[in-house]
Amino acid sequence: MNIFRFAGDMTHLCSIVVLLLKIEATKSCAGVSLRTQELYAVVFVSRYLDLFFTFISVYNTVMKVFFITSSFCIIWYMRHHRIVSQTYDREQDTFRVAFLVVPCIFLALLVNHEFSMVEVLWTFSIYLESVAILPQLILLQRTFNVDTLTSNYVFLLGAYRALYILNWLYRYFTEPGYSQWIVWSSGTLQTAIYCDFFYYYVVSWRKNERLSLPS
């Protein structure tokens, strides 16, 4: 465990908590893509199956439980909360997630470290996480709605990606024989898509800023 990874995990967890708190505080999820949140929940469940039979550390176990519970909390709020569920842009959030899930399953079956159930599911979760933000990106490009996606949520997402890349560089230079091509390649793709998301976030923020400026 190095400081980059620890900080990366903390900012990743904080980004989910910040989004959850924002939804709870404003009782609204306007602009948030439920499909992306559901894809994240699938990523965490398919990645953390080893929660039940391999113990790596207390930190590892606690963080996995946190990620799974917090992502399901967001989904619960967006689907079932009396007030929040009415603010969900159902008509706009129409990305066909099958176009993401099916190719990730095939790719995980073809390219993996080991052809076992847990390993293929873990690899699937790595591939899926790299494209999971696409429904959110499409929704943002359609609505430019950044009411709930606060800037600290976006900043924390960016910090999570940047710190994880630093973590991989650090491990590459300090651990002999460390190489994770699957994680590195999908993590790079994920970071590229996040940069596109950040770009559209700034565009949306400026657009709203112009609209709200006193004429």
């Binding site: 995990d9 990743h12 080893d50 590892n60 963080m63 996995k64 190489s179």
Partner: peptide
């Protein structure tokens, strides 16, 4: 050496 199938990262 590093074993890619050890899942120590989240």
């Amino acid at each position: 050496a590093f074993d890619p199938t050890t899942k120590d990262e989240l």
